[in-house]
């Protein structure tokens, strides 16, 4: 069971979430100009990374908001949680070692004192501060 740190609600069991597959797949800019090969790529081809993978998750039983996550597909370690619309953070340095307890993740299960007050409809693209590291033992 993954323990996932929702940027709005704090860390919750995986059962509260839905998986959304690869993140940062833009809708084609000029759909009318695309050939069959390009359509196939857009519709059916997604990265299947072994290692750190940027993916989307939905906190379906909680705040019902989408967010992005960097997760290692081999160890299942969650390396970062960051808002939709922001670029993939650089976590070449192991996240846990670098940030220690200074995680900005809404803590534990409760009042989430540090939860960023991002609006659901307009998450500012500059709010890199809400890119969060996962708490210890985020995966089992």
């Amino acid at each position: 069971m993954l323990l996932i740190s929702c940027p709005n609600c704090g860390s919750r069991d995986e059962t509260e979430f839905h998986y959304g597959g690869q993140a940062h797949v833009p809708y084609p800019e000029n759909p009318n100009d695309m050939n069959d090969r390009e359509w196939a790529e857009f519709l059916f081809y997604r990265d299947n990374t072994k290692g750190t993978f940027a993916e989307r998750w939905l906190h379906s039983t909680g705040c019902r908001q989408w967010f992005n996550m960097l997760r290692d597909t081999v160890t299942y370690d969650i390396q970062a949680v960051y808002p939709m619309g922001t670029p993939r953070p650089d976590v070449s340095v192991p996240a846990a070692a670098e940030s220690g307890t200074a995680s900005t993740a809404a803590d534990s299960t409760t009042t989430g004192s540090a939860a960023p007050s991002t609006s659901a409809t307009s998450i500012s693209a500059t709010s890199t501060a809400s890119s969060t590291t996962a708490p210890e033992g985020a995966t089992k």
């Binding site: 909680g62 705040c63 019902r64 908001q65 809404a106 009042t111």
Partner: peptide, 20 residues
């Protein structure tokens, strides 16, 4: 934020999401 409840004596407002 998540968890907070606001309101008056007779009305409670529960946080469901940042804008819900």
């Amino acid at each position: 934020r998540c968890g907070e409840v606001s309101g008056t004596d007779s009305v409670s407002v529960l946080w469901l999401a940042p804008s819900e």
